[in-house]
């Protein structure tokens, strides 16, 4: 008889299933024995014991947004993303319940709909992804399967910059929920019982909206230089107007533009617009942000984050 190798190198490893053995699987155990008798080796089998793996009811709900989702007062169809995973070992349907009226937050969004990520791309596609209707299209998940769920809400006009709103999504196994170990006789996949697992067969998680609002304050000042080196407002004096746009708040103002009509009894000094000290042209056809249309100057400031200022100057001459 060859000695038993003390070091065996093998290329197999057993697969791991998070949800465990599929419900309805039979676990069968049979031992064998051999021994030497007068007539040679004898082999015997034990009886086979069989036990059935019941369905374990478990579910995990997770907010899939990386952090607070920024939004603005009055914004419509704002999306929070969740995932619902069947962490049990049988195929199970789950009822979903959104809750936008949570305590301890600053405001309550208005629920629009709960939407299933029907096309599985992880992104809310309005009109393509199916709107969830409780009891009608409850997601049915195989063991370990995950579905993405979007909770769509409208933001009221009232919240202030920095306010947060909590939105919760709960999922419950349709077979039943309860304290771990609760059994639903004969209702498991594969004919066995369904047993509530460690999650209680229900779970929920919350996502958050954060109001990132911004507002702008515009101040205008003027300095005069007369033809004689003084600051008198006489014909021929040049007035330099300075417009300072100050953006405050935690958000970003998008597409901010300033314009200012040329005052009566003055004439615009052509090509005199500056932004942050850099000259802009009067043409509206070129790429730069400044323009003069014959009666007013305009500067496209674009997207300005809270905490920043933009300074625009232009000059006129008193007629």
């Amino acid at each position: 008889m060859a000695p038993i190798a003390t070091l065996l190198l093998l290329g197999v490893s057993s697969p791991a299933f998070a949800a465990g053995t599929v419900a309805g699987t039979n676990i069968e155990n049979t031992a064998t024995a051999s021994y030497d008798g007068p007539g040679g080796e004898v082999q015997i089998d034990s009886n086979t014991v069989t036990i059935v793996v019941d369905e374990l009811l478990d579910v995990t709900v997770t907010s899939a947004d990386p952090g607070d989702v920024a939004t603005q007062p009055g914004a419509e169809d704002q999306v929070l993303t969740f995932t619902v995973t069947n962490t049990g070992n049988g195929t199970e349907k789950y009822a979903l319940t959104p809750d936008v009226v949570r305590g301890g937050d600053d405001f309550d969004p208005a629920l629009v709909s709960v939407v299933i990520d029907t096309n599985g791309n992880g992104v809310y596609d309005a009109g393509i992804d199916e709107v969830y209707a409780a009891g009608t299209n409850d997601p049915e998940l195989a063991p370990d399967e995950t579905v993405t769920v979007f909770v769509i809400s409208d933001i009221p006009a009232t919240p202030a910059d920095g306010d947060r709103a909590e939105v919760n999504l709960a999922a419950e196994a349709e077979t039943g929920t309860g304290t771990p170990g609760t059994s639903f006789d004969g209702q498991g996949d594969g004919g066995g019982d369904a047993v509530v697992g460690t999650t209680g067969a229900d779970d929920d998680d919350s996502g958050f909206f954060l109001i990132q609002d911004a507002s702008v304050a515009l101040t205008k000042s003027a300095s005069i230089a007369d033809p004689f080196g003084g600051d008198s407002a006489v014909p021929g004096s040049v007035i330099t107007y300075t417009l300072v746009a100050t953006v405050t708040g935690s958000g970003t103002l998008t597409g901010l533009a300033v314009s200012d009509p040329i005052p009566a009894d003055t004439s615009y000094n052509s090509e005199s617009i500056t932004l942050e000290g850099i000259s802009l042209t009067d043409s509206s056809a070129d790429a730069d942000a400044g323009s003069f249309d014959g009666s007013a100057i305009a500067v496209e400031l674009g997207d300005i984050p809270g905490g920043q200022t933009r300074t625009v100057t232009f000059q006129v001459t008193i007629d």
Binding site: A19, G20, T21, I27, N29, A31, A33, S34, Y35, D36, G37, P38, E41, V42, S46, I51, V52, V53, D54, E55, L56, N89, G192, D193, V195, G197
Partner: peptide
Amino acid sequence: KVVPGDRLVFILKYRNVGDRTAEN
């Protein structure tokens, strides 16, 4: 019935019911 995570104890019993020794 069992569920994933249950701890099982398997017990094998053997008995020589003959009248001679079984070897190996």
